[in-house]
Amino acid sequence: MMYAITIYGEPGVFENLPDEKQKQVLTGHYALQEALGERGDYLSIKLMPPATAVTVDPAPGRAQAPLIVDGPFAETKEGFLGFYAADFNDLQEALKFAEMISSPIARLEVRPVAWAGGVLSTG
C-alpha cells in the first residue's frame, strides 16, 4: 500500500533555526531518503514559501474563467510544507519511516494514498 507522509509546520521557522538544528532536521531527511531509495521508487517534494504561490479559485459563474488571485495571504499559521510518498508493507512500517523526520518544528501525517499516477503510480 502506498502511503504519503505529509509535513505541516509554520512556514519560515526552519530558516530561523540555528545552523546545527537545521542540520539535525536535514540529517533526518537524508536518512529517510536513503532508506526509501534502497527500497525502491519514492517521491518527495518540498514546497517553496507561500509568497511564491498564486491561487486559482473556482470560476465565479458559468462559462467564466477560474479566478486567479495573487494570494495566498500568508499567515504564520501552520501550513503544508511538503511530502514523501512510497510503498510500505503496512501502516506500522510507514510510521516507523515517518519517525525518522520527526522534529519539534513539524507535524507529520501518515495517510494511505487512494490513487497515484505519473512516475510513481499505484498501478
Binding site: E10, P18, K21
Partner: peptide, 16 residues
C-alpha cells in the same frame, strides 16, 4: 528545547 522555540518566536516577532 528553547532553541527550537526561539525560531518560532523570531518568526512571529514582527507581527506580534
Amino acid at each position: 528545547m528553547s532553541e527550537w522555540l526561539e525560531a518560532t518566536f523570531s518568526n512571529n516577532r514582527p507581527r506580534a
